[in-house]
């Protein structure tokens, strides 16, 4: 887990105080958070699971917004949806990572819209964030299976998909087997994650049929 140094923590606490006294301040503080509060100095890589300082800072701001608007779940849901709507990729990722804020406000259907939006992109960091615990829980069985297949296509490691062990079912394995067949037919490698999903015990383990 990324930890904040003392100065970053002080800047973040000041921003949180501002959000508590006027929740609309989040509209400027959230986009500027990386620059004004703290961010990981290296350029964002393509690693879908990399937790960056600006992610941590923005998720804290979201949680503070959730506390500040706890009595007004409609306004909270709208503010969070707007942070996503007007956000760049880094801001959207943080909203997805902090989705529990919105789900707790009892507005899961609005959160689900954001998760579905993220899953329509091909941005691995957005797709990965959408499939964290709060996001994955909002997907029905069909959407969840499609999301897992998308991860295989765009290269999001399946260990970032929350609840996969419990939700991997026969229809999903059929879809993944078909995908693996297509890859083999085209002479391409099948991703290890797909093979593991199809045969969780590994190629050396005895199969159930034997």
């Amino acid at each position: 887990m990324t930890t904040l140094d003392e100065q970053t923590e002080q800047r973040l606490v000041a921003a949180e105080t501002a959000v508590r006294s006027d929740p609309t301040r989040v509209r400027s503080l959230f986009p500027a958070a990386g620059r004004d509060i703290g961010r990981t100095r290296t350029a964002p890589g393509a690693a879908p699971g990399e937790v960056r300082l600006e992610d941590v800072v923005r998720v804290r701001l979201l949680a503070t917004l959730g506390e500040a608007l706890a009595e007004d779940p409609d306004t909270l849901a709208r503010e969070v949806a707007d942070l996503y709507r007007f956000g760049d990729a880094a801001e959207r990722r943080a909203v997805l990572l902090g989705l529990a804020t919105l789900v707790d406000a009892g507005r899961g259907e609005r959160a689900a819209l954001l998760v579905h939006d993220a899953l329509r992109t091909n941005d691995v960091r957005l797709v990965a964030a959408a499939l964290g615990p709060a996001g994955a829980a909002l997907l029905d069985a069909d959407a969840f299976r499609q999301a897992v297949l998308k991860c295989l296509f765009v290269g999001v490691p399946l260990d970032l998909v929350a609840g996969l062990d419990q939700r991997a079912d026969a229809p999903l394995r059929t879809m993944v087997a078909s995908y693996a067949d297509e890859r083999r037919a085209a002479g391409r490698a099948v991703p290890d994650d797909a093979l593991t999903l199809l045969d969780p015990a590994g190629p050396d383990a005895p199969t159930q049929e034997s």
Binding site: R27, S28, L29, P31, A32, F86
Partner: peptide, 9 residues
Amino acid sequence: LLPRYLAKD
């Protein structure tokens, strides 16, 4: 809506 965008990197 401009203030949201004027805050960005």
